[in-house]
């Protein structure tokens, strides 16, 4: 495992995403402020913090769903760092369909509920110009298999799916075009623990297998312990602590992080 990490780090020393002094204000209130970090290819970063700490605001700013007030978000596109905050909307939307993916907390926000599972997975492909029904279907079937959805459920609508299946379908729909960076907003929120465990297992497998970089927002420390290489702790819109996941969780320095870690119920 250690070798693998070194390999990944050695493969490229250029960050995939560089965030510099990002801030978002809601009128006089702070959404998030002075956020800066680098994300390297293949790295998974967790953002934790209590409700209202600015995690989701930060994620939405990074993904271009919200316009940041100050700061830069530089993304490595074909060897060139481009600022996604000032980039034109068509370009940003194109990035959102190709190199980026966004997994919503509530699957119904990220899915088309009145379109079959196969159509949901195929949408990104068709959006990129795929015009061969057989190919689209084969690819959709392959991806549904990878997220453990049976092929005979392919033509069912997500309304007929359980919460866990919907979330897996959302992941398949997002990963089908082979993105390099995935934004996840509470991907396991609202699921029961056994389904959470399977979803995390699946996510970990996919992230490692595809060499994805990911930014995961969650308040569930178990999720970041399992998935994230690095951790960022937020409070009141500010980043209060960063570091390797194990380091932050096992030896928290900031008072809030200590509170957060000690609040987890040990079973």
């Amino acid at each position: 495992m250690k070798d693998m990490i070194e390999d990944r780090a050695g493969a490229t020393d250029r960050p995939l995403l560089t965030v510099e002094g990002l801030a978002k204000y809601y009128g006089g209130r702070i959404g998030c402020e002075e956020v800066s970090f680098d994300l390297y290819p293949g790295e998974v970063m967790g953002i934790v913090g209590e409700s209202g700490s600015g995690k989701t605001t930060l994620l939405n700013c990074l993904a271009g769903h919200l316009a940041a007030d100050t700061g830069r978000v530089l993304f490595d596109r074909a060897g060139q760092m481009v600022d996604t905050v000032t980039m034109s909307e068509p370009e940003r939307r194109m990035l959102g369909r190709t190199d980026w993916a966004f997994v919503h907390q509530h699957a119904h926000e990220g899915l088309r509920m009145n379109v079959s599972a196969g159509g949901n997975v195929g949408e990104r492909l068709m959006g990129l110009g795929a015009r061969h029904y057989g190919d689209i279907r084969a690819k959709a079937e392959d991806w549904l298999g990878r997220v453990e959805i049976a092929a005979d459920r392919m033509d069912d609508r997500p309304t007929a799916f359980s919460g866990g299946m919907r979330q897996r379908l959302q992941i398949a729909r997002n990963l089908v075009t082979g993105p390099r960076l995935v934004f996840m907003d509470e991907p396991t929120g609202g699921l029961d623990v056994s389904v959470q465990a399977r979803l995390l297992d699946l996510l970990r497998g996919l992230v490692r297998e595809m060499g994805l970089s990911a930014i995961i927002v969650t308040h569930d420390l178990a999720v970041v312990r399992l998935l994230a290489d690095r951790l960022m702790v937020m409070k009141s819109g500010h980043v209060v602590e960063t570091g390797l996941t194990d380091q932050v969780l096992d030896d928290p320095q900031h008072a809030y992080t200590q509170l957060l870690v000690s609040s987890v119920l040990q079973v």
């Binding site: 088309r112 379109v115 196969g118 159509g119 068709m126 029904y133």
Partner: peptide, 11 residues
């Protein structure tokens, strides 16, 4: 962005 139109035909 007309991918959605083909989603209808796909369905």
């Amino acid at each position: 962005e007309y991918g959605l139109m083909h989603v209808k035909l796909y369905e």
